[in-house]
């Protein structure tokens, strides 16, 4: 039906998250129809990114410069390190524009059944960074799951001897959340973490 090159393209695209063979075929067809405006620039962008991609030696973020743009940014608060599971979490927090400190990518969470052990995660570099002069807080921004919270407790133990405050993200009602639709666990966490209203 079509040449080997196009078949290879479909096969490779179908390996991407959210893509199956059908959606990969549609994407390839779209690229072929927009060869000059989309396919060629995309091909060049992929080549450049693949060529220049680096893992930041300080935080584990992906970037084309080393250290990464966040670690190199002069306006960042270097006294706070936010620990995240993966690079996607950095992107999520950066989108919120609510954090101006540095990050540390753990590379996963402890998993009892999948056999992810502490030595599989970037724990030693985290403890080394937290021990550096000037670091005063480590925020554990891991998922509110059994594995995520187990990992948070494990890290808190490892950071015990560093002279830093260890905090974690609050658990509770999401913005725009309707109490009637919340699951029991979220409601329980929200009630436990309730706080006094300022001025009340």
């Amino acid at each position: 039906m079509h040449g080997a090159e196009i078949e290879t393209l479909i096969r490779l695209l179908s390996r991407l998250p959210g893509m199956g063979p059908r959606s990969a075929r549609r994407a390839v067809l779209h690229l072929l129809r927009h060869r000059d405006s989309l396919m060629s620039p995309l091909s060049k962008a992929l080549e450049v990114a693949a060529d220049r991609l680096k893992t930041c030696p300080e935080c584990g973020n992906y970037d084309t410069v080393s250290p990464c743009s966040i670690c190199a940014e002069s306006g960042r608060d270097r006294s706070i390190i936010c620990v995240v599971e993966g690079v996607g979490d950095i992107w999520a927090i950066e989108r919120s524009r609510s954090f101006r400190g540095l990050y540390h990518v753990l590379g996963g969470v402890l998993s009892a059944l999948d056999g992810v052990a502490p030595e599989d995660l970037a724990v030693v570099p985290l403890v080394a960074r937290a021990s550096e002069n000037g670091v005063r807080e480590v925020i554990l921004a891991l998922d509110a799951t059994v594995d995520g919270q187990t990992t948070s407790h494990f890290l808190a133990g490892k950071l015990k001897d560093c002279k830093v405050v260890v905090s974690r993200l609050a658990h509770g009602v999401p913005v725009g959340g309707d109490l009637d639709f919340l699951d029991d666990g979220t409601l329980m966490a929200a009630l436990r973490a309730r706080s006094a209203l300022p001025g009340a």
Partner: peptide
């Protein structure tokens, strides 16, 4: 019960 009740206890 809910497992979230144990999140604070390592």
């Amino acid at each position: 019960y809910h497992v979230a009740a144990l999140f604070g206890d390592s």
